[in-house]
Design a protein around this nucleic acid. Structure first.
Lengths: 171, 171
DNA sequence: GACCTAAAGTTGATGCATCAACTTCAGTGG
DNA sequence: CCACTGAAGTTGATGCATCAACTTTAGGTC
């Protein structure tokens, strides 16, 4: 049992309906709009209350979770799932703002490490609290238990569908 | 009945839990990741198959729905819910690409109108089909009827919560 | 008609995101 | 040791998104 809608018999090739019904467009638009609003609200709050962007927040949080607050660029890339050039550009901006520092690390005194500055550490601590509160308010508080379960399931399903976890057993 | 999880008794102020449980963070991250993946897939397909960005697609579709394929900038602003400067910049780029044209319109031969070019019209027709197909594949096909209903409800709820429809009865 | 104001639209600056091209350095084989 | 290769990281260019400041013009008022 797939679709229970009865609609004015639209011509399907029965194989690939390469169009959406008005009602489906409507659903899609509603959905996207809700997402945009949610994300926008969180971004604005971050900017307004802590003076940082979502991108900056992501980097700060990731670094703050690392032991010693230091990571390699490549580790940031893996953790954030960003392109390395994106990370590099972002780090440059954040270095200019004084949130992070590119330091020389390692035993042989070579490769580059990224570290949080005192300021970065301070900002991220505040921001995490505020952000968590906003996520609770805008996201969790808007969900019933049942809705939450459904959405969580669906999210997981979607992830494995679009970006299946690579089955590389220790490559 | 609110929470059925039993967790190590975390100290709530019972008033404002300004933090999230690890499980909640997990949920949030999963959710956000699913969104990113979905949007990224659609964007890439648009770029790959039709050579346009999501922003360009939005403008093209909006214009193509207008009678005569022409609109004022302000109408685009309202319809897209973008800032006017964003629309203006976007139109400049799209004019350079030959998708739209800023034309002089109106009876007194004054104010600026935005029109689709022949190329713009051609591209949008193709793109809408392709995009619709992708939305079906990635979004609708990943949802059961029940999930769809839940998510739709929640989206609508979220919208009225964050951006309540203004009750201005003809201000 | 001359003037003022507000809406409509543009422009510039800056940060985010992505692609392609480049540099640098560690490790490896000769 | 020397040259090659590839991974790590940076840089430049371009488009998207937002804020603030500016220009233009429609429309009202005297």
């Amino acid at each position: 049992m797939k679709l229970s809608r009865q609609l004015p018999v639209t011509r399907y090739d029965s194989a690939m309906p390469e169009t959406l019904e008005p009602d489906e467009w409507n659903f899609w638009d509603t959905w996207m709009r809700a997402q945009r609003l949610l994300v926008r609200e969180l971004d604005r709050a971050l900017q307004r209350d802590h003076g940082i962007s979502k991108a900056e927040f992501s980097v700060l949080v990731t670094l703050s979770r690392a032991s010693g607050g230091e990571m390699r660029v490549g580790e940031l890339v893996d953790s954030l799932e960003w392109e390395k050039s994106r990370v590099s550009h972002q780090l440059t901006r954040m270095e200019n703002r004084g949130f992070v520092a590119r330091t020389e690390g390692g035993p042989s005194g070579r490769r580059t490490r990224i570290g949080l500055t005192a300021q970065g550490r301070r900002v991220v601590q505040d921001a995490v609290r505020g952000h968590a509160g906003n996520i609770r308010r805008y996201f969790f508080d808007s969900l019933t238990q049942e809705q939450a379960a459904t959405i969580r399931e669906w999210s997981e399903h979607l992830i494995t569908r679009i970006d299946p976890p690579s089955d590389n057993p220790t490559p």
